[in-house]
Design a protein around this nucleic acid. Structure first.
Length: 445
DNA sequence: TTTTGAGTTGTTCGA
DNA sequence: GTCGAACAACTCAAA
């Protein structure tokens, strides 16, 4: 009799370096399954839905058309597929998000009821959340200490893709149609595209990363976030390649991967921080309701070129340069006094790489309500940031064509440019206002 | 237990 | 233009 197992893909849409898939392939026949969970699908913005559909098509191609898509609640669908195929085991990676972790517990229980074995293997991280502890046995509260312990802890080597596997032939629902909004162009999805982007970064940019990463007008960042978000590449694969690099820039890039893992760890220990400020004192902070300023921010019409360029880049590509993410986030929270969750929701709506842990906690880092131990002075001056990191204005001109003919010296503080708004706030005033509000949370004048 | 040192990405002011 | 200090004293990790 043929042995059959189910490989349940979730946010690991790849064949290489996928331990759960390799384990599933110990069976003679494997069902490569993706469950289209309405709970997740309906809550994803159009960009992420479209990207997921494209990534599923790529995975299906890599499997020779064998991917089995089933729409429905995984609690019902996964046991049903197991029964339908006589599979004795279901393989999948662990999910550490608030929803995914609970879903996996439920599915495991349902499978247990029909005597199907399941055991999570691997995770989207080099070091799984919950593994890194300080000497008291508690999770780290700050990045630097976590990062040191994370690097000391180390990780496994990548594993190979399976060879000569027989995929089960099974009815599949169609990959859903999910078109992008008009005028949007998002990076190509899939494992192949991920590896191409990674190779390009390793060959061309990683050794200049220390400098290049801060210049949004230059091609100095890896743009790997979307591929990591969907598991089209595993960070282990990237860390193994980085280990062959000696440059300090490569070490800096490795620390960026550590940030991703740190925030996943924080969210795992404190799942409520997806919705609430991590620091309790911030519940006393007063914010303004999102109004006309928020609208202008989302459209990229604030009159601050680098803010507007970033917001327009987001709407055009489902991506925003990291440096600019900090600037636009600081502007919303510190200049418009809007609570970070409104900005975080907008980002999740439009980012192809939108990841709950990284998004919510990077927003809190900017807002000062998160894990950062020294938040007080971090109020970005959008004009100064523009001049410093986009000195020739090439980034802002790319996304804000109204500024095409403004001289370099004025491109970050344009006045009276036809079709381009005047600044909607006075930064110096709003900075002072932010400091006043921050002081009040401490019970002082 | 107590103490000490350190902390991703900043800004402004004045010398 | 450049540089260092002040911003205001906080939290955490580790010795």
């Amino acid at each position: 009799m043929t042995t059959t197992s189910v490989m349940w893909f979730r946010r690991d849409l790849r064949l290489h370096d996928n331990p759960a898939l390799l384990a599933a392939c110990a069976a003679q026949e494997v069902v490569p399954l993706f469950v289209l969970d309405p709970h997740l699908w309906d809550r994803s913005g159009r960009v992420r839905r479209s990207y997921l559909a494209a990534s599923l098509r790529a995975l299906d191609d890599a499997l020779g058309g064998a991917l089995v898509i089933r729409r429905g609640d995984p609690r019902e669908v996964v046991p049903r597929v197991a029964r339908e195929t006589g599979a004795l085991t279901v393989h999948h990676a662990a999910d550490y998000g608030p929803y995914g972790a609970q879903r996996d517990r439920d599915v495991t229980e349902a499978l247990h009821g029909i005597e199907v074995e399941t055991q999570p293997l691997g995770s989207p991280y080099a070091v799984a959340p919950g593994r890194i502890k300080n000497r008291s046995g508690d999770p780290y509260q700050v990045y630097s200490a976590y990062q040191r312990a994370w690097a000391d802890h180390g990780w496994r080597q990548p594993v190979d893709a399976p060879t000569r596997q027989t995929w089960a032939e099974l009815r599949s629902d169609d990959i859903p149609e999910a078109s992008l909004p008009k005028d949007m162009e998002v990076v190509e999805a899939g494992e192949l595209a991920a590896h191409r982007a990674w190779t390009r970064f390793l060959d061309q940019a990683v050794d200049d990363y220390d400098e290049g990463r801060d210049l949004p007008g230059r091609d100095g960042v890896s743009r790997m976030s979307t591929y990591l978000r969907w598991g089209e590449i595993h960070p282990r694969t990237m860390l193994a390649d980085l280990a062959r690099k000696r440059s300090s820039s490569a070490a800096t890039y490795r620390k960026e991967l550590a940030w991703r893992e740190f925030y996943a760890d924080v969210l795992w220990h404190r799942p409520e921080t997806a919705r609430e400020d991590l620091r309790e004192g911030f519940s006393k902070m007063t914010y303004d309701d999102p109004g006309a300023g928020f609208e202008a921010w989302t459209k990229g019409e604030t009159g601050f070129p680098i803010v507007d360029a970033g917001m327009r880049e987001l709407r055009a590509t489902g991506f925003m340069h990291n440096r600019v993410r900090m600037i636009v986030a600081s502007f919303l929270v510190k200049d418009l006094h809007v609570w970070w969750r409104h900005g975080a929701r907008h980002f999740m709506e439009w980012l192809a790489d939108g990841d709950l842990a990284s998004n919510q906690h990077n927003w809190q880092w900017v807002a000062g309500s998160g894990t950062d131990a020294a938040p007080y002075f971090r109020i970005f001056n959008p004009t100064a940031q523009g001049k410093k990191f986009d000195p020739d204005g090439s980034y802002v001109r790319r996304w804000v064509p109204e500024l095409a003919d403004v001289p370099d010296a004025e491109v970050h503080e344009p006045r009276g440019v036809p079709g381009y708004p005047e600044p909607i706030v006075d930064h110096a005033e709003e900075r002072a206002e932010s400091l006043r509000r921050f002081d009040k949370t401490k019970g002082r004048a």
